[in-house]
Design a protein around this nucleic acid. Sequence first.
DNA 1: ATCCACCCTGTAGTCACTACAGGGTCAAGA
DNA 2: TCTTGACCCTGTAGTGACTACAGGGTGGAT
Lengths: 136, 136
Amino acid sequence: MMQTYTIGQLGRLTDTKVETVRYYERIGLLPHPPRSVGNYRVYDGAHLARLGFIRRARELGFPLDQVRELLELSGQEARSCEQVDELVQAHVTDIERRIHDLQTLRQELTQLLAQCQHGKIAECRIIEALQPRVTG
Amino acid sequence: MMQTYTIGQLGRLTDTKVETVRYYERIGLLPHPPRSVGNYRVYDGAHLARLGFIRRARELGFPLDQVRELLELSGQEARSCEQVDELVQAHVTDIERRIHDLQTLRQELTQLLAQCQHGKIAECRIIEALQPRVTG
DNA sequence: ATCCACCCTGTAGTCACTACAGGGTCAAGA
DNA sequence: TCTTGACCCTGTAGTGACTACAGGGTGGAT
């Protein structure tokens, strides 16, 4: 017999909240599964694999619309890797930009902290630095 | 005479969209300004300074509730810097965690890319790596 | 019969805006 | 005087990716 799962079991196997599984179904990322007599969703191994794929891609930081593209591509076995490669490449570039932005931020904040003399707010360099240069 | 500003002027001076200024008012971050006869908001220099503070803090990545705290603290001139310091310190720690997470992510993705043989999807290592290890 | 864990739908909340729709105001030019 | 166009007003809904109820039904064990 084919293995089946309730939504809760599927969630435990993929580390996904039940509400999230239903959400993925609602936005068309997971197919509507068949229902039991009691109207429970009945999932099979294919559902499990697809949800696993989605969750792994999410862990790697892909937004849902890119996950959708990856799912689409993963089904077209004869197609070349090129698009997958580009998609991942673009994602890496995006991550690198975010790392850079955060590093800049950290430096600014660290400089502020270094200037703090631990006195009163009135002479606090941090608060001062937040005061805008425009004052008229 | 005291300098006054329309919402649009305030927006231009602080690089803030008009809708955002109204949003800050709605959530209580900016006070309700007086209105003109035509029901236009009329801002003064204090509003400008406060909005500038908010925007600068946002640029530095503080979420709005922390901006609220910073605004609160900045008004209490006799108080010690300690809380400001802690707040900024905690923010730096948070940013460092995010940098670390993104670096881990980048490494994982870069490894995937390095494994790509530029062949067909059927043998794509990237797609393969996304396939879940659980398959039953 | 009753309990409890699980499932169902539908709606609203999160964060920090952003984007309308559908109107009113104001200053300048023809 | 009329009209244009830039600006302003309110209120609501959308973004991403969930999360959190409320209010109810189901299934298996005791």
